[in-house]
Amino acid sequence: MDNLFRRTGIDVPEPVRRFLQGETDTWLRVEEYRDGNTMVVRTDVPGIDPDQDIDITVTDGALHIVARRREPADKDQPGYRSEVHYGEHSRSIPLPRGANLDTIEASYIDGVLEVRTQLPEQTGTSATKVHVSRGGNRPPEAPKNNVM
């Protein structure tokens, strides 16, 4: 289904896309913003070892983040209660056209994963004027073949 959205150019919000694909509550919540010519993606993933529990890849123009949170050993102790989600959590973030994949860097500080990549300089937006025709100014239609 992801390929269908990508092919048709439909921009579907991540939670909706995941729901339609049958994924529930296994995604990372992210902050995404631009810092000058840098795209910054941040997500809170406390209590993990970034060397073992985080995988970051780029494929098909998207940044893919996978983080694993392992259940604690003392979970079977009497009185143990947890509202923390354990297991594998992931997120795919489309990268803007022209993002420099060679400059992608990731850091993990105080439970926050931050991924940065350089974007091309924005030289202002160019606009194309589109002519709006009035009622009778349409080009003539081609004749239709009436085959029965």
Rank of each mutant, 00 (worst) to 15 (best):
residue 116 R to W: 09
residue 79 G to F: 15
residue 118 Q to L: 08
residue 43 T to K: 01
residue 42 R to S: 10
residue 134 R to W: 08
residue 138 R to V: 05
residue 91 R to K: 07
residue 131 H to S: 07
residue 73 A to E: 08
residue 93 I to V: 12
residue 142 A to R: 10
residue 146 N to T: 06
residue 43 T to G: 03
residue 31 E to D: 10
residue 139 P to F: 08
residue 101 L to C: 01
residue 43 T to R: 01
residue 137 N to Y: 11
residue 87 G to C: 06
residue 135 G to A: 10
residue 108 Y to C: 03
residue 136 G to R: 05
residue 63 L to D: 00
residue 46 P to G: 02
residue 48 I to S: 00
residue 32 E to L: 12
residue 110 D to R: 15
residue 50 P to M: 02
residue 132 V to T: 11
residue 90 S to C: 06
residue 89 H to W: 04
residue 58 V to S: 04
residue 73 A to K: 12
residue 95 L to S: 02
residue 30 V to W: 02
residue 127 A to G: 10
residue 95 L to T: 05
residue 86 Y to W: 13
residue 44 D to Y: 10
residue 129 K to G: 05
residue 82 S to G: 07
residue 35 D to A: 14
residue 128 T to P: 00
residue 107 S to V: 05
residue 47 G to W: 04
residue 43 T to D: 01
residue 69 R to E: 01
residue 44 D to S: 14
residue 37 N to R: 14
residue 121 E to S: 12
residue 117 T to V: 06
residue 59 T to H: 11
residue 140 P to D: 03
residue 61 G to K: 09
residue 131 H to Y: 10
residue 118 Q to Y: 02
residue 98 G to Q: 13
residue 129 K to H: 10
residue 111 G to I: 02
residue 68 R to C: 10
residue 99 A to G: 05
residue 93 I to C: 03
residue 116 R to M: 05
residue 49 D to I: 00
residue 122 Q to W: 12
residue 62 A to C: 03
residue 92 S to K: 11
residue 22 G to E: 06
residue 142 A to G: 06
residue 116 R to Y: 00
residue 107 S to D: 15
residue 135 G to E: 14
residue 81 R to T: 05
residue 67 A to K: 06
residue 128 T to W: 10
residue 59 T to N: 00
residue 147 V to P: 07
residue 109 I to Q: 13
residue 98 G to K: 07
residue 123 T to E: 15
residue 109 I to T: 14
residue 49 D to E: 05
residue 16 V to Y: 07
residue 66 V to S: 05
